[in-house]
Every structure is written in C-alpha cells, then in structure tokens.
Design a binder for these strands. Structure first.
Lengths: 119, 119
DNA sequence: TTCTCATTTCAATAGTACTAGAATTATAGG
DNA sequence: CCTATAATTCTAGTACTATTGAAATGAGAA
C-alpha cells in the first residue's frame, strides 16, 4: 500500500459517522449490512450515509453488492489488513519483541475487551 | 479506547506530514528522533512540524522527552496497539479464522515487504 | 550574564470537508 | 404500465484544518 492510499484510509476513518459504519461492518463480517439499516444504526440521514459510504469505498475499506432493492455493504478485510501492515511496516528496525505483543493484543476477541475469556 | 479517541488518532494519521512523521518514528523505535531532524526528514518548516507533533501527542501516538537542547519524539507503541485493537474489536462476530491472517500479515517485518527474509 | 541554538506559540489566510433537503435513478410488485 | 421503495446525486451553506512567517521561550555555552 502506498502512503497516499493509507492517508485516504485514515482520513476515511477519522470521521465519527464513518468510523461508526466501519466498526458496524467489521462486527457484521462478510454478511454485511444494507445501506438503510446502516443509516438507522448510526442515526444519520440516508443521503449523508450514502456520502460517507462512497468515501469509504473510495478508500478501499468497504465493498458493496446489490441484493434485490437493497445495496449491501461489507467491510473489506483485505483493505484493513493492508492498512495495518503499512502502519507497522519496518517497525522498531525489525526488533519484533517490541511490535509482536502489539499485534497479539489486537487478535480477534469475541465481544469482550478483557483477556480473560468468559464465552 | 473510546471511539472519540480513536477518531482523533485516525484524524492525526490522515495528514501527509503527520503520517510521514509517524512512519519515521515507528521505524526509529524507542530511540526516537529530535524535532529538528524530523523537520529535515519530512521536508517541512520547524513551526509546521511542531504543530503536527503537538497534534500527534494529543492523539496519544507520540511521546516527547527533552535531551539537552533538543526535544526527542518517539512513537507511542501502546497507543498504536490500542488503536488497532479498537479497529478490529469484535470483528467477524468472533470468527477468528477471518481476522487472524490479517494480524499475521501485519507482523513485524525487517524492512522488506516480502515474506522471504534475506537479512 | 550574555549569546546562540532548538523549538514552540501566535495570528491571519486559504483550502477542504460535512450536512441537509430536493431531485434522480434503479428495482420489485400490482 | 404505474406505483412504491431503496439508495444515490446534486447544490449550497457552514465549519473546520493546514500553512506561513514573525516573535517568544527555554536550555546550554562562553
């Protein structure tokens, strides 16, 4: 990923409504969420959500597909991967004992912030 | 990390000069870089870099310490950790087979984009 | 103390992004 | 074909953010 593209991704994520949308879609996974349902969830007008979704798509963070009358949006996990990769690339001059725990902490946790799993 | 704070982080990273600074400091690791040297590296005026460093500090992405006449800035790796954690939290409804490879790909690679290590 | 270097603060300007509402396009059903 | 629904596009107004250069601050050296 080039720096200019990473910048666009961060810009996309720097806006309240858009960040809420991405978080919603990250939770939703591959199933995705229809545009209207997204607007309900983040409590914004349809036109406003449409504007932000286009922005997120341009940044490569979400994908869209039509399903009957609805348009379903889903997080683009490969885009997220590239972004994190870009941010941490060459970190610490390659001393992985510093950055390894950072990524370990980010590992997929099922709806609980604590490390003590209670599922 | 709260959403508002994550938003500030992304906003901080969404600006060309600031993103260059963070990448520089991520590479530099704990040793850090003096403000003046940062300005040279990213090719911006001292006052402009100072403005951006303050912004990055406010977001919790860099730390500063004084060393003689210079002020040394370093990446705040715990801040970066929290940010990635926030972005990927509860992802895919807990189906780690989807998000695990994302984080694996982001693992610390010593200055080479390819997986074939040649150090 | 006085001088010098490194960095920050300040004030003004210019550029960019966000929001809301009305009109438009696209799909499904009667 | 005509109506209803889902979503997007367009336009205009408002607010925020970045940049620049000059002046001020703070730390060390003579």
């Amino acid at each position: 990923m080039k720096q200019s593209q990473a910048r666009e991704c961060f810009a996309a994520l720097s806006q309240e409504t858009r960040l809420s949308i991405v978080r919603l879609l990250v939770k939703a996974g591959e199933a995705g969420v229809a545009a209207g349902a997204i607007a309900d969830d983040v409590e914004a007008s349809p036109s406003n959500v449409s504007f932000h979704l286009k922005e997120l798509e341009r940044a490569g963070l979400v994908t869209q597909r039509r399903e009957a009358r609805s348009i379903i949006y889903a997080a683009d996990f490969s885009g997220l991967q590239s972004l994190i990769e870009f941010l941490m690339k060459d970190c610490c001059g390659g001393r992985s004992e510093i950055c390894a725990p950072i990524l370990a902490a980010a590992a997929c946790k099922p709806a609980s912030k604590r490390s003590r799993a209670h599922a």
